[in-house]
C-alpha cells in the first residue's frame, strides 16, 4: 500500500501547481478586468482581414495631426 504515498504526493503536487497558477494569474492582473477580453475575442475575424487590405493604403495615410 506504499503506493498511497505516491498518489498522495502526485495529487497534492498537481493541486499546488494549479494553485500557484491561480496566484500568478491574479498577480498579473487577469482578474482586474473580466469584461473587456470577452468582447475583444469577438474582434479576431476582422483583425485578420484588416492588415492585408491596409498594407496597400498605409503609406498614403499619414495626414493625421
Amino acid at each position: 500500500m506504499g503506493v498511497i504515498y505516491v498518489l498522495l504526493t502526485i495529487s497534492i503536487i498537481v493541486a499546488v501547481i494549479f494553485f500557484i497558477a491561480f496566484i500568478i494569474s491574479v498577480k498579473n492582473g487577469q482578474y482586474d478586468d473580466t469584461y473587456t477580453p470577452s468582447i475583444r475575442m469577438l474582434f479576431d475575424d476582422e483583425l485578420v482581414k484588416e492588415p492585408k487590405e491596409k498594407s496597400s493604403s498605409a503609406p498614403t495615410n499619414n495626414n493625421q495631426s
Binding site: 469584461y35 473587456t36 475583444r40 474582434f43 476582422e46 484588416e50 498605409a58 499619414n62 493625421q64
Partner: peptide, 26 residues
Amino acid sequence: SSCIWILENLHKLQPHITASQVDFPK
C-alpha cells in the same frame, strides 16, 4: 464594443502608436 474596437486599432490610424488596450469597465 465599437469603442473598444476602434481604440484598440489606433495603430492603424497612427503607425507610431504601437499598442493600445482598453479596460472597458474602467
